[in-house]
Write a protein that binds this DNA or RNA. Structure first.
Lengths: 258, 258
DNA sequence: CTTTTCTTTTGATCCAGATCAAGACCTGGA
DNA sequence: TCCAGGTCTTGATCTGGATCAAAAGAAAAG
């Protein structure tokens, strides 16, 4: 399944190790042997082109996907046909966690640009995580972090006025980019204004106006999809969201969607 | 820690088994031996009285809690002091999952009435779930279900007008009560109007008005905290929320908070 | 039983942000 | 190079639900 062509052991061994993101999507502190095992179950697949689906709502669940490059959005379709964007996902993040329980995808994942992912068959991962304690622990923590993140997003949606929501979104994005080694204060939005608005529970026009207003206030600089954060502290102050719990010990790595 | 007094083996063995809810909070299909092991790590503790905290925001995480009877609400406090109610939790549900990642509670849990819980030290549970495959799988599924539920709630908050939110909440409650063997169409709200409003991102006055209007429409009958659903289908139609994914195979048990 | 306090209901007003409308700007295809 | 079909911005209006205000029930306390 995972490895058809014949390759040297050292080549196998380095697949995950050479990925600059493996500490994010997968556990820290695994020995070479463990990493090797992990590597063996991962399927690499051709990149997903912009607009293509990685998986679709209601499809049978079999794998988690770790994003290596590019980005995707996930969304559900309401019974009335309306779409609801759930999240935007960056390199180093793991998607599909919500489908484990029902064994069926609860949302669709579509690439926002050319995106490459590692496919991780979940039954193999489950087996492996029984053998590798650190892996099991990491998975629990990842899922927990996702729960915490979603609860934070619920809070944002329930209480905050639109300004705060958008600031919160931008700060969140910035932090996630930083975590993965990209520039924290300068990045490209891969989602359209419409998608961002949808995700934050507001109208596209409002996003447009707010970006303009943030720019006028000297908080950010916008040029189409390109965002530069000029005043992170000021933006943070507007966001004033669920403070990122520093997390006590170890990882604190993960954080999902926006 | 968990068992100071001397008791017979058969007594130990039945603690979880005799609990009518163990299939919900803990895995189905465990043998007696496994159930016994599980039982050994669970601490019973005196009931939490109404208004008492089970745990508080920022407190160190050590255990999950399975609710045996009663109910709790969980909520976070914003930096501005505002509370945001995250969920209401019923017997058979497991709370604390959001704290695994950061090792610190991301919300406070307070009893809405006298409530008894089983405390499950998470490090023991983690160890045990390496030994018992079914347990590990169950935990993954529970956490996944929680993620899915939270995403559903995000959708409700982001898109739906107030009518739909409340209908959705009532239907959700009804389903959860049914799942645990209580009457599906007649129950008591243990949260105040204010808490419900807060959780659904609206004003208390709106809840009040909507309950009245639902009653006028003959959908429900309200008497203070007591709710009777007269027209489940009609209410469902208004809710029109993320259809409960039937889940493919096995469990489909869990579903968390409202 | 009476008083105090908390919760809920009901009514009147107001406003944040949606919706509607139209124009400007990209981007890609022929 | 030009055209067609997005995507984004900007302005004007409208409205769902919040907020304000006050009364009416419950429940708890004295």
């Amino acid at each position: 399944m995972s490895r058809e062509r014949v390759i040297s052991l050292s080549e196998v061994r380095t697949q995950c190790q050479k990925c600059s993101l493996y500490q994010l999507c997968m556990p820290m502190g695994l020995g070479d042997g463990d990493l090797n095992k992990l590597d063996k179950i991962i399927k690499r697949r051709r990149p997903v082109e912009k607009g293509e689906f990685l998986f679709r709502l209601d499809q049978d669940f079999s794998s988690l996907y770790a994003i290596r490059s590019g980005s995707l959005k996930t969304y559900t379709s309401q019974s009335d046909g309306q779409e609801q964007v759930i999240g935007m996902h960056l390199p180093g993040e793991l998607i599909g966690l919500d489908a484990i329980g029902s064994q069926r995808h609860a949302c669709s994942a579509v690439a926002l640009e050319t995106t490459s992912v590692c496919e991780i068959p979940f039954d193999h991962l489950e087996t492996l995580s029984r053998e590798i304690p650190g892996l099991q622990q990491h998975l629990f923590r990842l899922m927990s972090a996702e729960i915490q993140h979603d609860q934070c997003h619920m809070t944002v949606l329930a209480r905050m006025p639109v300004e705060n929501r958008l600031a919160s979104f931008l700060i969140g994005l910035s932090e996630r980019y930083k975590l993965r080694g990209y520039a924290a204060n300068e990045f490209n939005l891969s989602m359209s204004r419409g998608d961002i608005a949808n995700m934050l529970g507001m109208a596209m026009e409002t996003i447009s106006r707010l970006l303009g207003s943030f720019q006028d206030q000297g908080l950010i600089q916008v040029e189409r999809k390109h965002i530069r954060i000029l005043d992170p502290a000021g933006l943070q102050a507007i966001a004033s969201n669920c403070r990122e719990l520093p997390g006590k010990p170890a990882d604190s790595s993960s954080s999902h969607s926006a």
